[in-house]
Computed example of a mutant assay.
Amino acid sequence: MSDLSGQISSTSDEDISVQAAEWLVRLDDDGTDQTTQHEFALWLAKNPRHIQAIERMKKLLGDVEALHQYYPDLEVAKVILQQSLNQSEQSKTHYLYQGLGVLLMCSALIIFFASQYAPLGYWTADQYNRSQSWQQHTLQDHSQVKVSGKTAYNLQFNQQQRTLELLQGNILLDVAKDAQRPFKVVTSHATIQALGTRFMVTQDGQRTILTMLESKTAVWPEQQTNDKIQVVEGQRIEINAKGIVDRQPIQINAHLLEQAWDQRKLVANGDDLTDILDYLEMYYSGKIIFDRASLQGIQVTATLPLDDVEKSLQALAEELNLEIQHSIPYVVKVVRK
């Protein structure tokens, strides 16, 4: 790395920003090396614009770093900066700014999708689960909750009620009986009250899906308590922001779906491709992005592995003439060919 402390301060804002980016990478690599710290202090003292540039750069990278709580493997910032700094001296400025531009757009894109699929309280939830994790929790009332993929929920138990707020993801519930305290699952689209024992609930941001494995539940859309329907064993119902999608529940093979959960598979039977991609995204370590309008209406009938999302995407691409693009680390784009 060049001796940045010796460079003149009468440079352009662009050059100063490039130097600031170089310093942040160097400080990250060298840690608390005293020589590096001394040279950095000299560089800061040369011009107040140097301090301003460092503060701007830290804020930009800090926004991306904050996302690591939701995407712990995301290294977009470091990868782009490091690749940019590895370019030749002649093209360093161009590539660094190109990298930072991509980083800024990527950050905005990720933040947008995080707001769609991961509510603000996701990483402070009572329980949360990573993309490639299947777990089982025992609640204080001895109810059993299986979770998979990017799932998060809060609990509110008291003497009058038991409420599980599903922020995102997939749960399979085996509810303990308690006649004095009804058990409810609340999502952004609906409230589900257990009248029996076993059922599955999925919330992927676009919709809530209730799948009954045993007994029955009462369901009503958000803020529409008078619009209740009952869903019984072997039925599935979908609720979105507009309410119940179809008041006639879909008949399903409950045993097959529970078996698929245990085998970490997704069984699609004429499902819309956009719904499949939403579901797969919950099991992917990054983001899956696509143009919903251009892919809507394509039906999928397949059994796809949830523990190998890349394999599932390739299978969909081959079958449906799609293209899978990996232009940004940890972000997959699905487009029609």
Results as ranks from 00 to 15, higher is better:
T191K: 05
Q224W: 10
L166R: 02
T197P: 03
E222D: 12
T217F: 11
D246S: 14
T208R: 02
G243T: 13
Q168R: 15
I229Y: 04
T202Y: 03
A176E: 09
E233W: 12
Q206T: 15
A241V: 08
A241T: 08
Q168T: 15
V175G: 00
T197A: 11
V232K: 14
I237Y: 00
T225F: 07
L210Q: 15
Q248C: 15
G205M: 06
V186N: 02
A190L: 07
A179Q: 14
K177D: 11
T191N: 07
T187W: 00
V201T: 06
N240E: 05
R247E: 13
I192M: 04
T187R: 00
R181V: 05
D174M: 08
D178G: 03
A190D: 02
L213K: 08
M200A: 14
G243L: 07
G205S: 03
Q224D: 06
K228M: 15
Q193P: 06
L195E: 11
N226D: 13
D178P: 02
E222W: 14
M200H: 12
I192K: 01
V175K: 01
V186P: 01
R236K: 12
W220A: 06
T191Y: 04
V201C: 03
G234A: 14
V175L: 01
Q180K: 06
A179I: 12
T225Y: 14
T217G: 05
K184M: 01
I171F: 01
P221E: 13
E233K: 12
I239L: 08
D178C: 00
V232L: 15
R247Q: 09
L173Y: 06
T197W: 07
V201K: 00
L195R: 08
K216H: 14
V231T: 13
V201A: 01
Q224F: 06
R207K: 12
D174L: 06
K242Y: 02
D174E: 11
N240Q: 09
H189R: 05
T225M: 15
R198P: 00
E222I: 13
Q223T: 15
L166W: 03
R236C: 09
P182H: 07
V201D: 01
M212A: 12
T197Q: 09
Q180P: 07
V201F: 01
N170C: 15
T225E: 06
R247F: 10
N240K: 11
R198T: 10
D174C: 08
S188Y: 13
K177S: 08
K184I: 04
